[in-house]
Amino acid sequence: MIKNLLGIKGWAFAGKFSLQRYAYILQRITGLGIILYLLMHLYVTGFKIKGQEAWNSIMQTVHHPILHFFEFLLFICVIYHALNGFRLILAEFGIGIGKPGRQVYPYTTSVDRQKGFFFFLMFLVLIIVLVGAADFYLLPK
């Protein structure tokens, strides 16, 4: 296992590794947000088994504007985590990062091979988030 010698700083500081590393850090931050939400989500949605009254009551509580905004932030986290995660799954199977070869000077790196794809996915994230924002805030119920 690769050791994180920088400790907590190593989680947030990308140093010279630039874009890919920040995408990776963001993947982890969004992942943490999503798992924390999942545990709360399980608790809240559990109210449905108590019937309509209990459900409407908990929905009234969670329909606070601030909580609604946090829900939208979480929506953005999920979209980013899913699409960037899709890229990481492809990379895991060696798709889109070039063929492995002998290292000869000047050394090349496969790290930036998915840069274009990454920007394309981030464009998709933006589009989905904008559509989601319309659904969250603009359209009437």
Partner: peptide, 14 residues
């Protein structure tokens, strides 16, 4: 998926 991710993150703290 979520809890394995959290576990991996904490494991990095040597």
């Amino acid at each position: 998926h979520g809890l394995y991710g959290v576990r991996s993150l904490i494991f990095e703290l040597n």
